[in-house]
Simulated assay, not measured.
Amino acid sequence: MSNILRKEMYLSASVLSYFFILFGLMFFLPGYPILCGPFFVTLGIFQSFQSAREANDIVFSSLLPIAKKDIVKGKYLFACFIEGCALMVMFVAVVLRMTVFSSIAIYRHNALMNANLFALANAFVIFGLFNRIFICGFFKTAYKFARPFVFFIVACFIVILMAETLHHIPGLTNLNAFGFHNITLQFILLIIGIFIYLIMTLLSCKKAIQYFEKIDL
């Protein structure tokens, strides 16, 4: 699998996929819906799928001495690699905002979601939805990707809207905890977000393999 991942990274990937990792830095922006950062990261991955389709990458990969399921796994591994890099950038931003920048007024009086572990949990959910809706949907045909990406956009912004709304509801203000306040709750929510990401990614990869095995290239 390491060879197919290298092939994805060096031959199939668009440079935008790597550049858009930097949108994880949006977690530093006050007064802005920071969960748009994960969305832009997925947009970068989408560019790789688009450029790969135009280059007939799926057909090329099918001619290699590998199983069809490995083609699907390669795409998932590449997406998870980009998502993992972006999550590390977001994690650094969260830690800095919870510690070094915790006394800055512009962050303390932020009306929108703070960069905390709950925000990071939502980033995991958004990436999980991308893997489940877009990548799995792409492998239904291994060619058409507009429809699954539109479905993902709708699901993504529903998550963003809910995340930005919940902490304004009385009794749920702890979701927007600043710094290390309610850190136990924040940590539990992060674990739940990671679990959701892993489940959606693993199950969708299995489903995508089933779809792709039925396609006659």
Rank of each mutant, 00 (worst) to 15 (best):
S51R: 04
S51H: 00
S51P: 00
A52N: 08
R53N: 01
E54P: 00
E54D: 04
E54Y: 04
A55Y: 06
N56E: 11
D57K: 13
D57M: 13
V59K: 14
F60L: 12
F60N: 12
S61H: 15
S62I: 06
L63H: 13
L64A: 14
L64R: 14
I66Y: 15
I66A: 15
A67P: 03
K68S: 01
K69V: 02
I71K: 04
V72S: 07
V72W: 03
K73W: 01
K73L: 09
K75I: 02
Y76Q: 06
Y76P: 03
Y76S: 03
F78D: 10
F78C: 07
F78Y: 11
C80K: 04
C80M: 09
C80F: 02
C80S: 08
C80H: 02
I82C: 05
E83H: 09
G84M: 01
G84Q: 01
C85T: 11
C85A: 14
A86Q: 11
L87E: 01
L87N: 02
M88K: 07
M88N: 12
V89P: 10
F91L: 15
F91P: 06
F91I: 11
F91S: 15
V92D: 09
A93K: 03
V94M: 10
R97N: 12
R97A: 09
R97W: 03
T99F: 03
V100I: 07
F101G: 04
S102Y: 03
S102H: 04
S103D: 04
I104A: 12
I104C: 06
I104G: 03
I104R: 06
I104Y: 12
A105T: 14
A105C: 12
A105V: 13
I106D: 11
I106V: 15
Y107H: 10
H109Q: 12
A111C: 09
M113H: 09
N114V: 15
N114M: 15
N114A: 15
N114Y: 15
N116S: 02
L117A: 08
L117C: 07
F118G: 14
A119V: 07
A119Q: 09
L120S: 07
A121N: 08
N122S: 15
A123L: 12
F124E: 05
I126W: 11
F127M: 04
G128M: 00
L129A: 10
N131G: 10
R132G: 11
R132C: 14
I133V: 12
I135T: 04
C136N: 08
C136R: 07
F138Q: 01
F139C: 01
K140V: 09
K140I: 08
A142R: 00
A142P: 00
Y143V: 11
